[in-house]
Design a binder for these strands. Structure first.
Lengths: 233, 233
DNA sequence: GTTCAAACCAATTCAACATTGGTTGGATCT
DNA sequence: AGATCCAACCAATGTTGAATTGGTTTGAAC
């Protein structure tokens, strides 16, 4: 070996590799050939190539995964859109916090864009929820009310997020069935709060709608915690 | 044929099927045998069995899917998790509005809960984005910065929503490749805006973080619209 | 004209195998 | 000795093709 390669071999392979990356035409996904092929093509041993790839990975220029290959750029985030998988990693409290962050902003947007049709449906849901004979019916109308608010924002992605959150809620709450068979009392906290939300939206009061929704969810949260403590017997 | 089976054959198979469901030991997932086997076991033709299964499905007692099988209970929530379907119904402008509603609130939450580790990673992403040699690299670090902000909020459902939004963004933007091969200029608007976001989070300034994120996204939105108009030649 | 069996179709699953980054152990060469 | 190389192995992943399965069509039989 020459004196240069004795203490500069790694660096030499790295520069060779960089040159290759600059010159090579990579496929759409930025994947480069398998190590065995690449080492052959560059006329280097796999050991040397792997050392060079290792430093390039440490620099964040490439990322690798067993069975997949080596790719340029930074490792993609594992986007887990799977509700079931997500539900396992969370809990009601965390979910409630997420709702508290998202839904008031949805209500704010709804106050700006709600149509008379939306408002009419909100009113209907509100009335039906009051008249509900069973808790199950109440929850159904309550859900529909909240979803109408989300629809009123008239934004497809936002509605999709809301539905995702809702599905998550059902998945997390699953198994914890409501034990109280009685119907909601006429002065259940939600009724006045729903009223506040709807009228704020009617009045195009964006901040008011957001605040009313936040208040409502906070009281739902209190209720949830209380029920959890009661269930600890 | 007997007079009974003439107008009661379907109902007869249904009751037979119900009896089977009540008696049979189903596997964990509630899957029942394939139609061909089941029709054989019950001594009925597949046509008849399928009619009975059809009404049971209409009643919501079972659900079926080609290639999967027939299952008792209600069809599991696929929960809009289908990004592709959602992407078809929306457009970049609407998506941008959704981001403008959601991400500032995520930044606000992050300002409260970010750990030094998160802050360090944000700084790293910021620096790497500045140093990016290609636009592709820049976008990669930009994405990672935004996701780190979402991680800093330390809320699993919220992170899931962020990822959903991101996947949607990729799906919608797909096909519109960036044509400019030049790397981002050193005074690209994003750099100062990212700086504002990060330092607001560092200072635990919740409102500041939300405002900075909003400003940033608004300028991204302007940029997007401008690019769309340029592309109209 | 209704029913049935068989064939066909498309979505899905499943199993076997090939590929790929990561690791180890002995051979080889300074 | 010590580094390097090479071959083999390992576990995760991708790929491919056959088998399964609900849905549909066809043609004969009654």
């Amino acid at each position: 070996m020459s004196a240069i390669s004795e203490f500069g071999s790694d660096r030499g392979v790295i520069t060779q590799l960089r040159a290759y990356l600059a010159q090579a035409e990579l496929p759409e996904d930025g994947r480069l050939p398998p190590e065995r092929d690449l080492s052959d093509a560059l006329g280097v041993s796999r050991t040397e190539l792997r050392k060079a790839l290792g430093t390039l990975e440490a620099e964040g220029q490439i990322w690798r995964h067993v069975g997949k290959g080596t790719f340029v750029g930074s490792r993609p985030v594992d986007s887990f859109a799977d509700i079931a998988a997500l539900a396992k990693r969370t809990n009601p409290a965390e979910l409630m916090r997420a709702r508290l962050i998202i839904e008031p902003e949805i209500a704010r947007a709804a106050a700006l864009t709600a149509t008379p049709m939306h408002l009419a449906e909100m009113r209907t849901c509100h009335v039906r929820a009051r008249e509900a004979a069973t808790w199950r019916q109440y929850e159904s109308w309550d859900n529909r009310l909240h979803r109408t608010v989300a629809e009123a924002a008239q934004n497809t992605p936002l509605l999709g997020l809301f539905d995702t959150l809702n599905a998550l809620r059902r998945a997390v709450t699953w198994g914890r069935l409501r034990t109280t068979p009685v119907k909601p009392s006429p002065n259940h906290h939600s009724f006045a709060e729903h009223e506040a939300i709807i009228s704020a939206i009617e009045n195009r009061d964006m901040s008011g709608a957001a605040a009313a929704m936040r208040t409502h969810l906070q009281s739902v949260e209190r209720n949830l915690l209380q029920r959890q403590m009661e269930a600890a017997d």
